[in-house]
Amino acid sequence: MSDPEGSTRDLDVSEIDKVIHEPARLGIVAHLYVLDSADALFLKNQMGLTWGNLSSHLARLEDAGYVEVIKEFVDRKPVTSLRLTQRGREAFRSYRDQMKGILDDLPP
């Protein structure tokens, strides 16, 4: 891709975090970024995903070390909550900056 001034500039998409880049996972990470924690039911309701879909995306995010599972008790009932790890937060911020940079570079 070249710009009118003649120099060459590439859109470097190779470093985009593909774990976060998938739309459903992006939504999950974005939700957990603004919330302290949420359980799977809340995420499913907010995102409109099926249980199977949500489970597979959560497993992928957990494998990447972006999401951690917390088992806690609320009113003496066990609740499995999900929280973004520090690594996940940094990855999301980095992804957001990357995408902003890419989109800002695009011609109007």
């Binding site: 919330l35 302290d36 799977a40």
Partner: peptide
């Protein structure tokens, strides 16, 4: 709805 904690 599910359980949620809003960030302080």
């Amino acid at each position: 709805l599910g359980y949620v904690k809003f960030s302080e």
